Amino acid sequence: RADKQHVLDMLFSAFEKHQYYNLKDLVDITKQPVVYLKEILKEIGVQNVKGIHKNTWELKPEYR
């Protein structure tokens, strides 16, 4: 399990490339446990629960 700041850096870097990611792809990118990753994502992102981007994560507007 990596340092939180290191995980945040990896996530922000990923979100610079694409606006939406599913959790599986973010786990592959960060190599972090799902529960730990979700904890961090809830602080900086929102999970889309409907629409064409259903079940994906994106950054909260203040982090874009």
Rank of each mutant, 00 (worst) to 15 (best):
E62Q: 11
R1K: 14
E39W: 04
I52V: 12
V34L: 15
K4H: 10
L26W: 01
N22Y: 13
I44M: 03
V49L: 12
H6E: 15
A2W: 03
K54G: 11
N48R: 12
Y21N: 06
N22Q: 12
Y21Q: 10
D3Q: 12
H6I: 15
D25W: 01
L23R: 00
W57N: 02
Y21L: 15
K31P: 01
P61G: 12
D25Y: 04
E58S: 11
F15N: 00
E39C: 08
L41T: 00
L37G: 00
T56F: 06
T56W: 06
N55R: 07
F15P: 00
K50P: 04
F12D: 05
H6C: 09
Y63D: 02
E39Q: 11
G51H: 05
M10A: 11
P61C: 04
Y20W: 09
Y21E: 01
Q19F: 04
V27S: 09
V49Q: 12
K50E: 15
Y63W: 14
H6G: 15
K17I: 04
K17P: 01
E62S: 07
Q5V: 11
Y63P: 04
W57L: 05
K31E: 12
I52E: 14
M10F: 03
Q5G: 10
K24R: 14
N22P: 07
Y63A: 09
L37R: 01
Q19K: 13
E62V: 07
L11T: 00
E58P: 02
L11I: 11
L41H: 01
S13C: 10
K38T: 14
T30D: 00
K42T: 10
Y21S: 03
A2M: 14
G51K: 03
V46H: 13
A2V: 13
E58K: 09
K31F: 02
L37A: 01
K50R: 11
D9C: 04
Y63E: 05
Q32M: 06
L41D: 00
I52G: 14
S13H: 10
T30Y: 02
Y20K: 09
L23S: 03
L41S: 00
V27D: 00
V34M: 13
E16G: 10
P33T: 03
L11K: 00
G45P: 01
P33I: 00
N22L: 09
L23N: 00
E58N: 12
L8N: 03
Q47V: 10
